[in-house]
């Protein structure tokens, strides 16, 4: 596959969230506001890209009997580094993300890519594949967070967008959007739209 294709297929036809339905838990939890969602997307992208790269570099030295352990050690180390960096440089966001940064370790997307791709492919394609999957995950997170923050809090990236006069005329933020069920419904809507645009994604009956 060409480099571009490695990067672009996870964005649409092999999207980890909407097609493979992986990483849903964090997608529901950290999408209340745009800023934490962006930071989460970036963190996952960094971890998938670099764990793919490292595992691919090591792939011929890893004994098959302990390969899952080796993969987890690499993922866990990267996640801890990301967590420490967030705590040092974007403290407020790291507080909002709280346990979800640590839970990147258990994000199925990452181990899935290591097993399915990095263990068998050369470092550069593996790195791109990790990058693409991280971005594909992040893309959905950002779309969901965009709607949830706009409709749930009337703001985007922390800036108030809905003018005060709207509220005086009786407009109210939708409190439901802040709760996880609406994130699931938003993701459902994205899957619906995506499938209606790509007929070949629809399963034959």
């Amino acid at each position: 596959m060409s480099a571009l294709k490695l990067l672009s297929t996870p964005l649409n036809k092999e999207n980890p969230i909407t097609i493979q339905v992986l990483g849903i838990c964090s997608a529901l939890a950290v999408t209340v506001q745009l800023k934490p969602a962006l930071v989460m997307a970036l963190s996952v992208t960094v971890v998938t890209a670099f764990s793919n790269l490292i595992i691919s570099l090591l792939r011929n030295t890893i004994p098959p009997r302990i390969r899952i352990i080796v993969q987890l050690v690499v993922i866990a180390a990267l996640v801890i580094i990301v967590d420490q960096v967030l705590k040092a440089y974007v403290y407020d966001v790291s507080k909002k993300l709280s346990v979800f940064v640590g839970l990147i370790i258990t994000n199925c997307i990452i181990m899935g890519r290591l097993e399915a791709f990095a263990m068998a492919k050369k470092p550069w394609p593996s790195f791109l594949d990790g990058l693409g999957n991280g971005i594909g995950y992040g893309l959905i997170l950002v779309i969901v967070a965009f709607f949830r923050e706009l409709l749930g809090s009337g703001s985007l990236y922390g800036y108030k967008l809905i003018p005060a006069s709207f509220y005086e005329m009786g407009y109210m933020d939708n409190g439901m959007m802040i709760l996880p069920p609406m994130a699931l419904i938003t993701i459902g809507a994205i899957i619906w739209i995506q499938r209606s645009k790509n007929p070949d994604l629809i399963e034959k009956q």
Partner: peptide, 16 residues
């Protein structure tokens, strides 16, 4: 891995 994490933790400690 332990060495790498130690270095990172020590480096970032003051900022945290």
């Amino acid at each position: 891995v332990a060495a790498a994490l130690t270095v990172v933790a020590v480096q970032l400690r003051p900022a945290q």
